[in-house]
C-alpha cells in the first residue's frame, strides 16, 4: 500500500493544484511509514497527474481540487480522496489506522461526504478530456515503495 499526500509545508495543500510537495507513505501494521518525498512538478497540475499516474500509487489524498483536475485524475486512473485537511502526519495516521472512513473525518468544512467535488464541474461540465489530452509523456520518479 503506497499513499501519496499533496502537501504544502507540513500540512495538506489547500488545493491539490497548489501543492509544493508530494509525500509518500507505506502502511505497516496500521502505522504509516514515510517512504519518500518529491517536489511537485513546477510545470502545473498536468505534469503532477502524469507523475502520480506513473508512480502507481494506491491512493492520493489531497485538499480541495477543481472538477477539471478531478476528472483528469480519474481519467489517468489515479484513485483520489479529495477535500481532506490537516497535517501530513495526522492524515497519514488516520489512513493507516482506518483507511477512507477514518480520513473522511478530516474532511474540509462545507464538504459533506456526499457532494463534494461531485457537483457541476466534477461531472465534467466545464471541463473536458482536454487536460488529459494535454498531458505530456509519462514522467517517472523514483520513490522507495514499501510493502
Amino acid at each position: 500500500m503506497l499513499i501519496c499526500l499533496a502537501c504544502y509545508g507540513d500540512r495538506l495543500a489547500t488545493l491539490m493544484e497548489s501543492a509544493t510537495e508530494l509525500r509518500f507513505y507505506g502502511v505497516e501494521q496500521n502505522v504509516p511509514v514515510p517512504s519518500g518525498t518529491t517536489p511537485a512538478p513546477g510545470t502545473g497540475v498536468v505534469a503532477m497527474i502524469d507523475l502520480l499516474a506513473g508512480l502507481g500509487i494506491d491512493v492520493l489524498i489531497c485538499g480541495g481540487l477543481s472538477g477539471c483536475t478531478l476528472a483528469a485524475l480519474q481519467q489517468s486512473g489515479v484513485p483520489v480522496v479529495p477535500w481532506i485537511g490537516g497535517t501530513a502526519e495526522e492524515v497519514a495516521t488516520a489512513w493507516a489506522a482506518g483507511g477512507a472512513e477514518a480520513v473522511n473525518r478530516l474532511r474540509l468544512p462545507g464538504c459533506a461526504l456526499r457532494g463534494c467535488g461531485r457537483g457541476r464541474a466534477g461531472h465534467g461540465h466545464r471541463c473536458s478530456p482536454t487536460r488529459a489530452a494535454l498531458r505530456t509523456p509519462m514522467q517517472t520518479a523514483k520513490v522507495e515503495k514499501s510493502s
Partner: peptide, 22 residues
C-alpha cells in the same frame, strides 16, 4: 461553506483559494 462550519477553522481550510498556499 455554512457559517457554523467555518467558525474556528483555519482560514485556508475554508477559503481554498489559489493564493492560500504561499
Amino acid at each position: 461553506v455554512p457559517r457554523a462550519e467555518a467558525l474556528g477553522r483555519k482560514c485556508w481550510e475554508v477559503f481554498r483559494s489559489s493564493i492560500c498556499d504561499g
